[in-house]
């Protein structure tokens, strides 16, 4: 096995955005069981070092493929379409306007300590993301339209960030 093989090859999963997550979990556990440092607690230094490196590698592959955003970003980078958020901030203005409105709504709900309002926002963003990811699946797996997929992934990065902020606001209200 090549240590530098891509994540899909390493976990023997088909290289696609749509993924059988139960199978991914199973493959990860099987591989982790073989290389985990706990299996080498009594081994020599060389084997323990190798085990640490391999287990780290296997965890990285699994974590990348598990979450849809990182999986999409990774697929794009394999296809030579790096999603470089820093150099590609030119998003359409109506999208940015909408993002600002979302953000204001979160800030207002946080200020007014409206936990149920935050929960609703959370739900709406989730719904939006679900549709977007379905779109990305089509663009990546069926149409191989990487430039458009990269654009949609950048929008999803905004939404993920927004979701994180909503959760953060809910946590702050709990405290």
């Amino acid at each position: 096995m090549d240590f530098n093989a891509d994540h899909f090859t390493l976990l023997e999963m088909p290289r696609s955005f749509r993924i059988d997550s139960a199978l991914l979990d199973k493959r990860y556990r099987e591989l982790a069981a073989q290389v985990h440092p706990d299996k080498f607690a009594q081994a020599g230094d060389a084997e323990r070092r190798l085990s640490l490196q391999w287990a780290t590698r296997v965890n990285e592959a699994y974590q990348t493929l598990k979450k849809p955003l990182s999986r999409a970003q990774y697929l794009l980078s394999l296809a030579g379409h790096e999603v470089d958020a820093n150099n590609n901030t030119a998003m359409p203005s109506e999208f940015l306007m909408e993002q600002m409105e979302w953000r204001e709504a979160v800030a207002e709900a946080r200020l007014a300590r409206e936990q149920s309002e935050l929960e609703q926002l959370h739900h709406r963003v989730k719904q939006r993301m679900k549709r977007r990811y379905e779109q990305v699946a089509g663009l990546l797996d069926d149409q191989q339209d990487y430039p458009t997929a990269a654009d949609r992934v950048r929008r999803l990065m905004f939404l993920e960030k927004l979701l994180f902020e909503i959760d953060d606001a809910m946590a702050a209200l709990d405290a």
Binding site: M1, E12, K26, R27, E30, L31, A33, Q34, V35, A43, G44, A46, E47, L50, S51, W54
Partner: peptide
């Protein structure tokens, strides 16, 4: 030898599947 064995372990995980 250790490296070869690790390799074999990983291949075995796939054989198991």
């Amino acid at each position: 030898f250790a490296a070869q064995r690790m390799d074999k372990s990983i291949r075995r995980a796939f054989a198991g599947k």
